[in-house]
Design a protein around this nucleic acid. Structure first.
Lengths: 135, 135
DNA sequence: TCCAATACCTACTTAGTCAATATGTTGATA
DNA sequence: TATCAACATATTGACTAAGTAGGTATTGGA
């Protein structure tokens, strides 16, 4: 299940894309528009800044701004940055410990196909697509 | 993320399907073959019995048995019984409280499409398909 | 030069869930 | 009547999601 972190992150990115003509946007404004607690939003935005998706500027007149064109952000990349890998099961996370049953596990191929489906879905949509509903 | 409950449930169903010529299969046997704790497996199997996917027989010579042909079980049905609705986000669970933003939420259509994708994937595969890798 | 706006930082809380265990009770069979 | 096995209820420990609290550093403007 996609958590609030990823969902809010996506909404923040769309919000900044929509207001990208207005220069730096303070967190307070985003929080108000998106009806998200400022303090919680700080946590989410922090990871977006550290992941180089956003640029932050301190002080008066500061705020946040996209670093690229909306068409250059992949939705899957935003989600995974905000809440970790999109793996559908624990056995398929990047740091999963190897399972002795994997060689003959009847269900593993199912999870692999499902994982591929999820990945392909989110990695084929850009932030611009999301804004315009092109998907 | 699909939890152990659903993953184990699927493995149990496949196990019973593969051994369906042997009459009632004791939980202990399934647990041993699948390397799952007996006590934990009890919890999972209990929901499968209550959901009428399995039939349990008590006493000596007892155990569990499928109630239908493997081709009559839908994988999605098993997963949802074991661990709840397959909704990708909280806003789309059956008992979600209505959200005031839903009418103009930019991301909601994305989650809806994703939810449909997940549903279609798992509801198009039967237990028999899973056993034979037909998917 | 100081104030207010703003990002940035560390820690904490609270409720809930996941995975599993413990300890029984009921029912069937030989 | 002993044994096997399902069925039932309660509890645990670790972890995470979601959110809060309080403080520090940086910037622009009056």
């Amino acid at each position: 299940m996609i958590s609030t972190k990823a969902r809010y992150a996506l909404r923040v990115m769309v919000d900044l894309a929509e207001n990208r003509e207005s220069g730096y946007i303070p967190l307070k404004d985003i929080a108000a528009r998106q009806e998200i607690s400022e303090k919680y939003l700080e946590i989410i935005i922090k990871t977006l800044v550290r992941g180089k998706l956003l640029k932050g500027l301190r002080g008066k007149g500061g705020g946040y701004m996209l670093m690229r064109d909306p068409s250059d952000y992949i939705v899957g990349e935003i989600i995974e940055l905000a809440e970790g890998p999109l793996s559908p099961v624990a056995c398929l996370t990047p740091d999963a410990e190897s399972c002795s049953r994997s060689a003959h596990c009847v269900t593993l191929p199912l999870w692999k196909k499902f994982g591929a489906l999820i990945h392909d879905f989110f990695y084929d949509i850009t932030l611009e697509d999301l804004m315009k509903g092109n998907y």
